[in-house]
Design a protein around this nucleic acid. Structure first.
Ligand SMILES: [Zn+2]
Ligand SMILES: [Zn+2]
Ligand SMILES: [Zn+2]
Ligand SMILES: [Zn+2]
Lengths: 145, 145
DNA sequence: AAACAGATTGAGAACCGTTGTCAAACCGAG
DNA sequence: CTCGGTTTGACAACGGTTCTCAATCTGTTT
């Protein structure tokens, strides 16, 4: 691990913004960049492997740590698959949900103001406060039918 | 493990219906019964421990297997906690969602026909079929505020 | 530029929920 | 009772995630 390694083949940094307040290290930038190369949900291990194929060797623990950082900062969305593993995806910064293909993972961001209102009012009706919610829709996309 | 053990202190079977098509063994009935003794979501291990305190010693693997049976049969609802572990609860048999207290686990079943309609139409709009969805609402209940 | 202090990394161990293994026990049919 | 498929439980194995800690890096201060 030599961060001073700046040989000619080292790809230029594409994402200049620091990663969630921490130091913009080579590894964190690599993770942040690879997140832009797909638009479906990928597990931490898949992302780690993907980095490997691109010549960016980042330790698995660091991938986990960075994804957690990004998730905490709201820069990526986290989804629990039905098998219980966490999957990550770079998303728009407004609140939204996902329509995910069960087969190929193709993901569509969806918004539903009515749902947002409904959850709030239901929760208030029962005296619950500090509401949050999770809503994911699963199905088989057109090309997988 | 002696299933013929029917000493006088053995509690009578309360739930006579067979468990999800399989054999109504002592262990399965014990699990099915203990599920009636709480109305919030409990992990498999918590349920296993709870059985222990009631003198019903059921193997952990059997608890997992039985809960899976019941879940497949739709007799219990499964929820993935944010830490990724599965939690179980006996629920009404109609489709519904949950409003869960983040602190004490108090759970309210909620229904929202509008949400059901919305998920279907959104999915159809994008050409997705065989739709399913997950929706959970989290908050702090009145007594935990 | 050299030194320093704190942040970050990576390899591997540890953790923990869950599932698999398999011999022993069980159960219902005949 | 006997027999064959089902179920059980102790324990091993598994997979994803987190922890540990020494080595390395980075920004800042001399
Ligand atoms: Zn698809
Ligand atoms: Zn929402
Ligand atoms: Zn509460
Ligand atoms: Zn629903």
């Amino acid at each position: 691990m030599t961060n001073t390694d700046r040989s000619p083949d080292t790809p230029d940094i594409q994402r200049s913004a620091p990663v969630a307040g921490g130091r913009p290290t080579k590894q964190r930038l690599a993770v942040a960049n690879v997140l832009d190369s797909f638009d479906d949900f990928r597990s931490a291990q898949e992302i780690h492997a993907l980095l490997g194929t691109k010549g960016e060797n980042v330790g698995l623990a660091t991938v986990y740590r960075t994804l957690q950082l990004l998730a905490d900062a709201g820069e990526v969305d986290v989804l629990r698959t039905e098998e219980g593993e966490a999957a990550y995806r770079r998303c728009s910064d407004t609140h939204h949900h996902h329509l995910v293909c069960r087969t190929c993972g193709a993901t569509v961001e969806v918004e539903g103001p009515a749902v947002e209102r409904w959850t709030k009012s239901i929760a208030a009706e029962h005296g619950y406060r500090d509401i949050s919610h999770t809503l994911e829709i699963f199905g088989t996309c057109a090309s997988c039918s």
